[in-house]
Structures are given as C-alpha cells and as structure tokens.
C-alpha cells in the first residue's frame, strides 16, 4: 500500500449543485458592464431627445393656437409666431424621423455586439476554454448570452417603443409622422422588440460559426439587415389590402394616415395599368388613355385599422425567424463541444 492510499479518500462529491442560470448571467453582466452602461446611457439620451422635442413643439403649438394668429393671418407679430410654430413642428418631424431610424438600426448593433464581443471574441481570445470548464455547461453559457440580452431588450425596447408612440400621436396636423412610414413603423408597437430579438438571435449563430470578431460581426449585421430589407419590401402585402377606385381624372381620396401601397389606372373592364400609363404621350394623353380603355384610378391601401394586424404579422414572422436562428445556434454549439 502506498502512502497515498492511507489518506481518507475524497468524499464522493456527486451531490454538487450545478450553478443556476443566474450565476452565468451575473458573470456575463460583469464582463460586459461597460457595454451595458453605454446601452442604458444611449437609451436615456434617445428618450430625453424624443420627449424634449415633443414637449417643446407641443408647447409652441399650444401657444400658437392660444394666440389670435392663424396660419392665414399675416402681420408682423403673427409672422414671427408662425415661423416659430412652423420651425418647431418641422424640427419635431425630423427629430422623430431620426429617432425612428435609430430604433430601426438598433437590431443591427445588437446583432453585432452579440456575435462579436459576446461570443466570437471568446473563441478568438480562447476564454471559451475558461468559460466551458467551470461548472457551467456550454449550453448554459450560450443560454445566458441569449437570455440576459433578451430580457434587457424586451424591457428597454418596449419603453422606447412606448415613448415613440406617445410622441408620434402628438404629430397629427401639420408635419405629421405617418405610423406606416419606414422609420416609424419599425419603431412603433411590437416590431422593434421583435427586430431586436431577431438581431440577438442572428448574432448567436454568426458568432459561433465565424468564431472571429470581425467576420462574426459582419455576418450578423448583414443577416439582420437582409431580413429587415426583405420585410420592408413585402410589408404592404402582409395583410389584405383595401382598394378604392375612382372614375374620371382624379385618384380616389383616402382618409388621412392611411398607407398608399399602390396607385394605378383602371380600365373599364376592371384591368389594372401602371400609374404612368400614357405619360409619354404628352398632350395626346387623353386620347391614349381612351384608346386603352382607362376610365379611372385604383388605390391599394392600408387604413389605420390595419396597423396592428400588420405589426403583429411582422412580429410573428420575426419571432419565428429568431426561434429558428436560436435553434441553429444551439445546433452549432453541440457540434463543437463534447
């Protein structure tokens, strides 16, 4: 018997508790503390800008309406007030446009961060060897990298979306922000949350596949942008369109705030022709149109009531894609480790 065997054998350590997901989450948050603070700071700046400009423009608007001036009265006093009023409302429209744009590109940043610094850099610098050989399984490691940002994004982006909805609702009248606009639609309702989750979900497989920061970041951003652009292109067809037709030389009037998806010429037989039919005919246009049997216009549009169906359909598509990307990420992860 060697001396070693005389030592009391180590007690069977089968009952070791595995760390809860919370431990992995806390370590992850500490690792990326600065990114978290930066994200919170940017969100607060965004909220301050949107709320600030909205309140300021609202104040100017109220003051103008309380004054004896109207948009048609012209005198020295009213010209000044009018200019201020006009400036405030147009600036608000621009600011909200940019704010919506910020929310629209944010999923790309999320994808880049998750794919690069959060996942691929662990492979590039070898720290995955540290992370995966603690008592935390690689599956837990990835789960923390998905669950923590997901929780933060759902909470944070919901606030941004609510603030944006509040601000947009105050733009009725002069210089409105249409809820169906490219930037606005992606910043309203449930879509921004779903886009952020998609960016997160696409970042994971990109980071796991590329395993290097720069290619992973590029892959994730390109994939997210491709989905966003594809959906932007087909958005109008995600819900059945309403159609109005008119006869004569004027297109039909649709209510305010609607989204005109397509306008064109209508023939007597109900056929559809492009809007620019006979534009090349110049002064002979009337004759040209008559020759082709054009009797009026048609408009395919989404009324305001289609906003939520469109939002929820798009959200559903995004969440399905995000779930698929997440499943792919776990598949890729399983292929690597034991």
């Amino acid at each position: 018997m060697s001396a070693l065997t005389d030592v009391t054998p180590a007690a069977p350590r089968t009952a070791r508790p595995g760390p809860a997901l919370g431990a992995g989450a806390r370590v992850l948050l500490r690792q990326h503390r600065w990114a978290l603070w930066l994200m919170v700071a940017l969100a607060l700046v965004w909220i301050a800008v949107v709320v600030g400009f909205t309140l300021w423009a609202g104040h100017v608007n109220d003051a103008f309406e309380a004054s004896p001036c109207t948009t048609t009265v012209t005198d020295r006093v009213c010209d000044g007030r009018w200019q201020e009023f006009d400036l405030a409302l147009s600036v608000r429209q621009k600011v909200l446009g940019y704010a919506g744009l910020c929310v629209t590109v944010m999923p790309g940043l999320v994808a880049a961060f998750v794919a690069g610094p959060m996942i691929a850099r662990e492979f590039e610098s070898g720290t995955y060897k540290l992370s995966w050989t603690q008592s935390v399984s690689p599956v837990h490691w990835l789960l923390a990298r998905l669950a923590v940002p997901a929780a933060l994004l759902v909470a944070g982006v919901s606030v941004l979306s609510a603030v944006f909805a509040w601000a947009r609702a105050r733009t009725e009248g002069l210089y409105p922000v249409n809820r169906f606009g490219d930037a606005a639609f992606g910043a309203l309702g449930t879509a921004p949350v779903a886009y952020a989750l998609l960016g997160l979900a696409l970042g994971a497989p990109a980071g796991l596949l590329a395993r290097r920061t720069v290619p992973a970041t590029s892959m994730a951003v390109l994939a997210t942008a491709a989905v966003a652009m594809a959906l932007n292109r087909v958005r109008g067809r995600l819900w059945p369109l309403n159609t109005q037709t008119s006869t004569g030389s004027n297109p039909p009037q649709t209510p305010e705030g609607t989204w005109l998806v397509e306008t064109g010429r209508l023939t007597g037989g109900g056929g559809r022709l492009p809007l620019d039919t006979c534009w090349e005919a110049g002064s002979g246009a009337d004759r040209c149109l008559a020759d082709r049997g054009v009797t009026g216009y048609y408009v395919d549009y989404h009324p305001v009531s289609h906003f939520w169906p469109l939002q929820l359909t798009e959200t559903g598509i995004l969440l399905v894609l995000a779930a698929a990307a997440t499943a792919l990420a776990f598949r890729v992860l399983r292929r690597y480790h034991a």
Binding site: P17, P19, A23, G24, Q31, T127, L130, S135
Partner: peptide, 25 residues
C-alpha cells in the same frame, strides 16, 4: 489551457468572484 485564457476586463478579485459564482458548492 496552455494560453491561460482569462477575461481581460475583470480584475484579479473579479476573476476569483467569477470562479466562485460559476462553481458554487
């Protein structure tokens, strides 16, 4: 591992804290 990978942004104390968090029990 051979290259002694560690999270570069954490302090020495932070690294030991992470070790305690990730290996409870």
């Amino acid at each position: 591992a051979q290259d002694k990978p560690l999270y570069p942004g954490l302090t020495v104390a932070g690294t030991l804290w992470a070790g305690a968090e990730l290996n409870p029990g």
